[in-house]
Design a protein around this nucleic acid. Structure first.
Length: 439
RNA sequence: GACCCGUUCGUCCAGCGGUUAGGACUCCGCCCUUUCACGGCGGCAACACGGGUUCGAAUCCCGUACGGGUCGCCA
């Protein structure tokens, strides 16, 4: 069994932050390894020193860990097929180059660059996603080593996959056309190539290829914006893979259990932030009380707000079904701070359209002034009384009350809000709104 | 330009010869709710085009168009 154990890898180059395309590729490799009970290897392809950035490696490791994709072998973990940085594997590359030299399969140019002699025969790629694809080989011989002695991607990639015992190469479809080269190299080295699976690419909403600089491209951004990693993973898994029934919200264990090549489709997909937000909202709602509190309070603390712990304990739980990302929280509960609150322009507009708005606000003010205590029941009774004095249904007063108290058209339970605000602040805000409507 | 891959609602997926072409997001309506959400119900909306094959094609074949990719001493 050990000889057939699945080994997959993710091999990013540290040229920027981990982006969603790379994360999705990593995820598919990780999922497949976990699905099969195999190993997932992380290898850093840092052969091009000019393109590496200082904290590129750190950003990748951090992003991977945030998403929950722990690697079995690789940086900071080790393993017996290391080192896991290409910059430290020069000896291995030299060794394999010697193999090719001994077989007379390479030649050196005047400037010292080394090229591989392509057999020139058609190569068939039997891809797990794309099916059988045949390529004729009439391209120029590929360079595998630069004049300065450093090696080129195709060669190191193949050498490493071979040395690391990678059994399944799952990568972006942009590599499909490179695969014949890789297969030629494997064969030249006397080894059988791994199984390939080329997965569709992730595109921008406008159909262009998503790259590092595009909106929503950096995994770090999602971490910073307090997305739930499991939601991002869930969404990413669904981009190009389907469990085939109509399930969309899947726990990670189920994704692992059901993930397999037949479920991967062939066409590119555009990244839809709105749907990611929905997935996040669904998972946020599904969180148990204490886990939700952890995320919600962290998001609020990060915003450095002037709201008491006691108030947060009351208001935050009410917000669980009202935001899709925890980072939306600070803005939504900002009205609890200070005496005044900003008025949402649309809410104000809607209020201004109702000719009775001022009457309603005046009646409410009077009813609130008459209250002897400020609790949910008494406030509720006051609103009821105001409604009665206007011969209106209580429901008709809720919107004006909400806008006056919070400045917003929607939000958490109104009575809770009014209690938290306190009678003084509520009356102050009602009078302010009344004055504004009058002008 | 050559070669390769792809093409089902605006978007993500289902469909793998016979379906009123299904689900999800978004948007709109209704219900629930004292309000706001959640939830429920309903609606709008798609098989790129042209030829075949077949009794029958979204499904198979061939072309065209469009999109993407590769052809680096980038990875």
């Amino acid at each position: 069994m050990s000889s057939s154990t699945v080994r997959t890898r993710f091999a990013p180059s540290p040229t920027g932050y981990l982006h969603v395309g790379g994360a999705r590729t990593a995820l598919f490799n990780w999922l497949y390894a976990r699905h099969c009970g195999g190993s997932f290897v992380l290898r850093i392809e840092d052969t091009d020193k000019t393109r590496n950035i200082d904290d590129g490696i750190e950003a990748i490791l951090k992003g991977m860990r945030w998403l929950g994709m722990e690697w079995d072998e690789g940086p900071e973990i080790g393993g017996d097929r290391g080192p896991y940085f290409q910059s430290q594997r020069q000896d291995l590359y030299d060794k394999h180059l010697e193999t090719l030299q001994s077989k007379d399969l390479v030649y050196t140019e005047e400037n010292g660059a080394v090229r591989f002699k392509s057999p020139g025969k058609p190569v068939v790629v039997d891809d797990q996603v794309c099916g059988r694809v045949e390529f004729t080989r009439d391209e120029p011989d590929m360079t595998i080593r630069r004049p300065d002695g450093s090696y080129i991607f195709h060669f190191v990639n193949v050498t490493d996959d071979l040395e690391m015992g990678i059994t399944h190469v799952i990568r972006g479809e942009d590599h499909l056309s490179n695969t014949p080269k890789h297969i030629e190299l494997f064969e030249a080295l006397g080894e059988a190539p791994p199984t390939y699976a080329h997965i569709p690419l992730i595109l921008n909403p406008d159909g262009s290829k998503m790259s590092k600089r595009d909106l929503g491209a950096s995994v770090t951004d999602y971490a910073d914006k307090a997305y739930l990693p499991e939601a991002v993973v869930n969404y990413l898994a669904l981009l190009g893979w389907s469990p085939k029934d109509d399930t969309e919200l899947l726990p990670l264990t189920e994704i692992i259990e059901r993930f397999d090549f037949p479920g991967i489709n062939k066409s590119n997909a555009s990244f839809d932030l709105v749907k990611l937000n929905w997935v996040n909202g669904q998972r946020l709602m599904a969180l148990d009380e204490s886990t939700y509190w952890k995320h919600a309070s962290a998001a609020v603390k990060a915003a450095d707000m002037d709201i008491s712990e006691e108030s947060l304990r009351k208001i935050l739980p009410l917000m669980q079904t009202k935001v899709s990302i925890a980072s939306e929280l600070p803005e939504k509960i900002a009205f609890l701070q200070g005496n005044h609150c900003d008025l949402d322009s649309k809410a104000l507009e809607k209020l201004a359209k109702d000719a009775q708005s001022t009457d309603k606000l005046e009646a409410l003010i009077k009813a609130f002034e008459d209250t002897t205590s400020w609790e949910e029941v008494t406030i509720d009774a006051a609103i009821e009384a105001a409604a009665g004095s206007l011969e209106q249904k209580k429901g008709k007063l809720m919107f004006p009350t909400r806008v006056a108290a919070s400045g917003q058209a929607g939000g958490p339970d109104l009575l809770t809000v009014l209690v938290l605000l306190g009678k003084e602040r509520v009356l102050l805000r009602f009078r302010e709104l009344l004055a504004q409507l009058g002008s």
